[in-house]
Nucleic acid binder design. Structure first.
Lengths: 168, 168
DNA sequence: ACCGTCATGTAATCGGTTACATGATTCT
DNA sequence: AGAATCATGTAACCGATTACATGACGGT
């Protein structure tokens, strides 16, 4: 019926893990976990669960008093969709779509770009390292750590690249 | 007035380089050059120049007979916008948003993912290498080659990562 | 003459971004 | 008590994707 996007699966996955969650809960978890490589603006975390609920993947319980928050949980249909998604490998690749590379490709001055990009990627690398050590300290599951490691590897690769561009 | 997106700059940049171009020309060039890390569906290459023309960044000349193709060229305003963009470094970073990593983060079986992802990234690596050697043979400008190199580096990094996940 | 593929375009829909707005808490 | 920040939500707009459609052209 509706198209399930990556955002949909993020929401399904997070709600499934939490049992029940409000958009705000989701927001918290998103930035704490996959925020490093897949962020979602908070307004989407209101819109998307609603869409999923309309299509029967989530059920909605609204508080009767106070803030009237909406609490979502996964339905059978939702759980099934999530499971199917998880057990199907993808050969889809995501494109880099990197602003720095784009400017480079269109003739911006490489050395000028390199400075700023290097700094930005070094900042990110630091964040990811912090995240990685938090995850380790918290005894997070292996996958979480792998994902953080992937991020670290990519940041390092970017840094290598821009250093080379910056020249000796 | 209007928001200039990365797509806008791609169009501006390509039209500027070509002098005059139809959407179809753009389509060709996109896949030949930045296609590897920043693709744009052809319908966008019809819509975006129109948008840019309405806002005064491009001028439009329509054939009077036959296919009535639209030919675009860059106006002064367009050229200026492009130049400003090119000489401003960015600290913006693009997120990976990688489907494979996402599934990994939500508990898909790592080894299962690794196989398919590895194959896909190896295919891409090969493509990028081919592109790189074509560029070199054609004596393409340094930046073009750098961009291709960046792609190669990333593909390699992905491959390292998924090999590690696949385990010994 | 026909078929397939390249070339060219438009329309509809929708997810995502940006901006706005206000209730709760916490801190000084 | 007031300011600042966190929490929570809605609305409007718009770029991007998907789907549909047809014209030209090269080969058999």
């Amino acid at each position: 019926m509706i198209q399930l996007t990556q955002t949909s699966y993020v929401v399904l996955g997070l709600v499934a893990r939490a049992g029940e969650a409000t958009p705000y809960d989701l927001k918290q978890v998103v930035s704490a976990t996959i925020g490093g490589f897949f962020s979602i603006p908070h307004s989407q975390l209101y819109a998307e669960p609603e869409r999923l609920a309309r299509a029967g993947y989530l059920s909605e319980r609204r508080e009767r008093t106070g803030r009237r928050r909406k609490h979502y949980s996964v339905t059978g249909k939702g759980r099934e969709a999530l499971r199917d998604w998880l057990r199907t490998p993808t050969d889809e690749l995501y494109e880099l779509r990197d602003p720095g590379l784009l400017k480079l490709a269109f003739g911006a001055d490489p050395k000028m770009l390199a400075g700023t990009q290097l700094a930005a990627h070094e900042r990110r690398l630091q964040e990811l390292r912090d995240l990685a050590s938090v995850l380790e300290a918290a005894g997070a599951p292996e996958e979480q750590r792998l994902v953080a490691d992937a991020g670290v590897g990519h940041a390092r690769e970017y840094i290598r690249f821009w250093k080379r561009v910056a020249g000796p």
